[in-house]
């Protein structure tokens, strides 16, 4: 008997209800984005959005911030986690604690702390790239978990020792073995970071930077259907990122030699 056969009528009912719970608001939002007043439906809201240069500016800024955040995570978090796993496994609880902190501290408190405490060079403070600092911490729990799963799946200490016994230095070991083995974990963490940065509103709004999420909020003040259209676009963008994670994850599970 297959799993679907065992599900039964009750199981199906729960699944369908859960599906409706998620799908109905999305479908209604999408339908509302096509509403043009009365009983007219069309693509007017989307035309308005596409004609707005502010949309592309905000989107470009969010993409730049996302890429900078991903770069910061790859350059700081990945080496730190490799080092911790190889040489200081006792620090794991400390890493776990730090990676959980962004869930515990409210975003508005982080903004207040950031505004009060951070000073630095002009090229960073006062520019949108100032946001990379809080975004790093917002994305940290997701990026940490993804990379941690990747590292746990490859027996890092043994692979490193195997490479060393074959004459490789630490740099060669990391570049030729560890990073390629963590490829899907790093891509997964990058895509999750992308989704977090695109959806972040509090920091950007309070610190007066015009990101994609702030633009959605602004346009929603006076053009509600356009805001709905942007929301749909945001969902599609996030889903695209998630699909990327799934595809990359599945790519790891399928025989690599078959590619």
């Amino acid at each position: 008997m297959s799993d679907t056969d065992r599900l039964g009528a009750g199981g199906w009912a729960i699944l369908i209800l859960t599906g409706l719970f998620f799908a109905v608001p999305l479908v209604m939002t999408a339908a509302f984005s096509f509403w043009e007043g009365g009983s007219r439906y069309g693509l007017e809201a989307y035309h308005v959005l596409l004609a707005s240069p502010k949309l592309f500016e905000a989107m470009a800024l969010s993409i730049e911030l996302a890429l900078a955040t991903v770069a910061a995570l790859v350059l700081l978090l990945v080496p730190a986690m490799i080092f911790m796993n190889l040489h200081a496994p006792k620090l794991r609880p400390v890493f776990e604690f730090i990676a959980t902190l962004p869930f515990v501290v409210p975003a508005i408190a982080l903004v207040a702390g950031l505004s009060a405490l951070i000073t630095g060079p002009d090229w960073l403070i006062g520019t949108p790239f100032y946001l990379v600092i809080p975004y790093f911490f917002l994305a940290l729990p997701y990026a940490y978990r993804s990379i941690d799963v990747g590292i746990r799946s490859i027996d890092l200490p043994t692979l490193t020792e195997a490479a060393q016994s074959l004459g490789a230095g630490m740099g060669q070991t990391i570049l030729w073995i560890v990073l390629p083995s963590l490829r899907s974990a790093m891509v997964g963490s990058a895509l999750l970071t992308l989704a977090v940065v695109f959806g972040e509103f509090t920091f950007a709004n309070v610190l007066l930077f015009h990101t994609y999420a702030v633009f959605i909020n602004e346009i929603g003040q006076h053009q509600v259907t356009a805001a709905a259209a942007l929301s749909v676009a945001s969902f599609l963008l996030t889903w695209g990122a998630m699909l990327g994670v799934l595809v990359v994850g599945r790519g790891r599970a399928t025989p690599i030699g078959a590619r």
Binding site: L159, A162, S165, L166, G167, A168, W176, S181
Partner: peptide
């Protein structure tokens, strides 16, 4: 360890997962 010219086979499977059998053997 990398300077000793000592080959080692480990208890746990230690092949590099991102490389084919041939690439694993030619790594050294």
């Amino acid at each position: 360890a990398s300077a000793r010219r000592v080959g080692m086979v480990f208890q746990s499977y230690s092949l590099f997962p991102n490389m084919t059998a041939l690439d694993n053997v030619r790594f050294g």
